[in-house]
Design a protein around this nucleic acid. Structure first.
Lengths: 177, 177
DNA sequence: TCCCCTATGTATAATTA
DNA sequence: TTAATTATACATAGGGG
């Protein structure tokens, strides 16, 4: 979508990767926001950057949506072929071709899991002053809604398939609205 | 992005709303998939359609990512300004202008919460045969990864702000990959 | 790290089948 | 309800400061 078409494969340069992450995460959240508004849909997104920093978006909130989702999972015996139909065949096959490598990557990741577990909290910022203002207002509304819908949280284990295997390599910077 | 520019405000016609939801959810998941591949990022998305049907996308899985997210929340005293920086000022202000109406809508929603709570399970399908094939392969990998990283799930309550207020009105059909 | 710019590639609103 | 088609509106890769 830029000056040049790019292959959907892991970005090697960690700097470029971070830039790409920031831009695309922003775009993803924007799309999610539009979806929730246009369709009155409830949406929750949680993302961990290549640097393992958490980011999230939710309407009415990540907790409410996730809780609702996990609560029904156990109940439904539905096939549960968890989406991702978005991923095209090409992309999927491409991913499959690297399965071996990815397995090793995942094993390494698993080994480092404990350390990473102590990650710093959510790194969220609002450089944009005007946005900060609006955010505060909306935050009030958010609290109000929470008071209405949120009650007890005791999420249960839920099994859920998925698609989209990736490698995890470097990390580095971040930022950008 | 279509024949005409549209305002980011709830779509009134329930039919159009459903169509829009399907298209945009597909697009959102596709973007999420690309983000996870390009940046080696972990992503989890949960969405409830206007008809209140659940859809999800996750890499390596919704559970793993969400669990990881919720686990750290309580620990971090970080400001936790949960993203959505994606929402531009315009969009935010637009939302604010309808706050009053939205409050009423939310109250109505709260009243109907119980009934909706008994929603049917995840309605996921894979019409595309080739995709189904690839999916199965990747599914195997997925199970493998789960065995490595997943352990016990007992998610804890987590407070998390948010942005993106919406109105909820009708519902109706669904479907489409 | 952070924007800004802009040429291009994508996503998608309407419309038609 | 599910697809195609096709304008257009958007998103964003590469580059610059």
């Amino acid at each position: 979508m830029g000056r040049r078409k790019i292959e959907i494969t892991e970005v090697k340069d960690s700097n470029t990767k971070q830039v790409t992450f920031s831009k695309r995460r922003t775009g993803l959240f924007k799309k999610a926001n539009e979806l929730s508004i246009l369709c009155g849909a409830e949406v929750a997104i949680v993302v961990f950057s290549p640097g393992n920093n958490p980011y999230s978006f939710g309407h009415p909130s990540v907790d409410v949506v996730v809780d609702k989702f996990l609560k029904q999972e156990p109940k439904s015996n539905v096939v549960q072929g968890t989406s991702n139909e978005a991923g095209d065949i090409d992309r999927l096959n491409q991913q499959l071709s690297n399965v071996e490598d990815q397995i090793r990557e995942e094993q390494k990741k698993a080994a480092e899991l404990n350390e990473r577990m102590k990650q710093k909290g959510v790194t969220q910022t609002f450089q944009n002053k005007e946005l900060q203002g609006s955010y505060l207002e909306i935050q009030k509304m958010k609290d109000y809604f929470d008071a209405i819908e949120v009650s007890d949280y005791m999420l249960l284990l839920a099994k859920e398939p998925l698609v989209g295997i990736t490698k995890q390599v470097a990390t580095k910077k971040r930022r950008r609205n």
